[in-house]
Amino acid sequence: MVGLLALFVYPFLVSLYWSFCEYDLINPPRVVGLANYQQLASEFASGTGIAKALWNTGYYALISVPLSIVLGVSLASLLSCDIRGQSIFRTLFYLPSVIPVVAASILWMWLLNPTDGLVNSILGSLGLWKPQWFASPNELVSANAFASSAWANNATPIGSKDALILMSLWGMGNFMVIYLAAIGDIPKSLYEAARIDGAGPLRRFWNVTLPLLTPVIFFNLVMGLIQSVQAFTQIYIVSEGRGAPADSTLMLSLQLFLSAFQHLDMGYASAVAWLLFAILGVSTWLLFRTSRRWVYEGVR
């Protein structure tokens, strides 16, 4: 217990202290009060630095987490149908999540090469658009994407963050197995009862599976949010370590890393970390508050 405190709580507090310091990792820290937070505020006000990072992180997290929940739940419920080869399918879907991030990122940069990557070759042979993926700072979820000009002349509004989201969906297997396990744990009698009431498969999913999954969905929502906001390695690799192209992949985690170890500004980096902490803390708290409305707590 003491060790736990030492290893987790001590670094926790030290970083809080640093966020009020000027610290370059070489010379001892010097207290500068709120300067780092003021810097954050001024960047936020002018829409540079941290503001961009916040936007990029939000875009990534708020799209990839819900999508991975939808995909994970659908896959898990498909897998729990009475079918053969379940364990093989299960393994196939789970596998990508254990591929080391370094290897996965390189693989995807290769697959998503705009000119002759596998994905675009397939899209091309189907006569579809060939997005620029990691080469473009565009965003699919934006007002601009509705303009027809965005899709004209071989152009697409799909860019680097969308590619990262795709990558994250590929690696959501570890969440899927949790859903799968939870579905396996739902008493068969409930389905029987529903069937007797004349409910079809979709209804059964909607009225039995989904409500009973909400606690697990909730857990995955919180964990997924934490994970996606803190995602670093893949972003570092695909962005040439600087948020390329045109700062479109400059996320909070990368911003933090660059300011700590390239700009030698650990104080500022700690302030970013605590901002991140505050955001995650508040959203987790909000989720817990609202969870009472939609998370099912019956049965047990």
Partner: peptide, 9 residues
Amino acid sequence: LLPWHVTMI
């Protein structure tokens, strides 16, 4: 909730 880059030192 705190990223490892700041706690690592």
